[in-house]
């Protein structure tokens, strides 16, 4: 797997991305100062546990945050900053240059509309296609994602599809417009284990064929290993460590990444040792230091008071005071 050189002009450049939600009593930070680049055709994985803010990054890019949420920072795409873009401007990017596959295929399709019409809609809206030609393209795309008898199935309604088939429909819908970027928000979490791999391979294969870059959000490291070129590990809305997949899996440096990998089951071991765990649970974001510090077994005194900066330590980027300590010694 070739790691993409960071020197090339990135397709998407995210700097200081933040997401905050206003709650009745307080304001909560879900994403805090996230930086990353995405190159053409690259598959970037974002991993982290529930509540780490990984899905909110995607929603912020698409302008789909909940009504009480707000994004800050910068996400450069095609000369525009997606953050704070007006709805009308966003609508020209959404579904056309950037599309998204959601986590729950059972509720993501309109129950009142034929599958074919839901697919054709993007072509009609963005390219001014006729319903007939858009419908034909939709049927061809359904065929490509492995829906049997696509011409007949295009006339069916979502409730006549299984979960796995619906996710294939979502993928077909997202890739029909040949977007530059596909955002995938835990696309396999709601599916049976047996079809998770199929759907992942489908995304990877179609993206490769059409040169689409993918941001794949997941909490499943197996998914990352299978599908991604690079990985970004998120904790408490902040980037802990980012590297190409081989580096990250072979030599994780951040204590959190190491904990995650230790907690991952492996097939083929002679004995089945107890899985590693990370003690504690994700805490509040009120602490000033590293968000992982309360659960970190190698915590330094400064970790709870000073937030570590995300620094370049090729071949990785890492935010950990241990790095600085190691470099000094």
């Amino acid at each position: 797997m070739p790691s993409t050189p960071m020197t090339a002009e990135p397709l998407l450049s995210v700097r200081g991305l933040g997401v905050r939600f206003r709650l009745p009593q307080a304001e909560v930070t879900a994403v805090d100062g996230v930086d990353f680049d995405l190159a053409r055709g690259e598959v970037l994985g974002i991993v982290g546990e529930s509540g780490s803010g990984k899905s909110q990054i995607l929603f912020a890019l698409m302008g789909l945050l909940a009504a009480n949420g707000g994004a800050s920072g910068e996400a450069r795409f095609g000369g525009r900053n997606l953050v704070g873009l007006a709805e009308g401007e966003l609508d020209r990017v959404r579904g056309s240059d950037i599309s998204i596959v959601f986590q729950d295929p059972m509720t993501a399709l309109n129950p009142f509309m034929r599958i074919g019409d839901q697919l054709a809609e993007g072509l009609i809206v963005h390219r001014g296609a006729t319903r007939r030609s858009a419908w034909a393209e939709a049927v061809a795309m359904l065929d490509r994602v492995g829906i049997p008898d696509p011409a007949a199935r295009a006339r069916a309604y979502p409730h006549q599809f299984s979960g796995g088939m619906r996710q294939r429909v979502m993928i077909a819908m997202a890739l029909l417009m040949r977007p530059a970027i596909l955002l995938a928000d835990e696309p396999t979490t709601a599916l049976d284990v047996t079809i998770q791999a199929q759907v992942l391979d489908l995304i990877a294969e179609l993206a490769r064929d059409s040169g689409t870059a993918v941001i794949l959000v997941t909490h499943d490291l197996g998914v990352v290993a299978r599908a991604c070129d690079r990985v970004m590990v998120l904790y408490g809305g902040q980037v802990m460590e980012a590297a190409d997949v081989d580096t990250l899996f072979a030599e994780p440096r951040h204590p959190y990444t190491q904990g995650l990998l230790a907690a991952m089951p492996r097939l083929g071991g002679e004995t089945a040792p107890r899985l590693g765990t990370i003690p504690g649970s994700p805490g509040s974001d009120a602490a000033p230091g590293c968000p992982f510090a309360p659960r970190c077994d190698r915590r330094l005194p400064r970790c709870t008071v000073e937030r570590p900066a995300l620094v370049d330590r090729p071949p990785r980027r890492i935010a950990c005071h241990l790095e600085a300590a190691d470099a000094a010694s």
Binding site: M62, G63, L64, E87, G88, L90, D91, R92, V93, R94, G95, S96, S99, I100, F102, D104, T107, A108, L109, N110, P111, M113, E121, G122, V125, H126, M170, M173
Partner: peptide
């Protein structure tokens, strides 16, 4: 969720209300 999907398709507010 399907209304969010329609927004993500960039169909615009008017069409979203009418069709979704």
């Amino acid at each position: 969720n399907y209304v969010r999907t329609a927004r993500a398709k960039g169909v615009g507010a008017a069409r979203m209300v009418r069709r979704h």
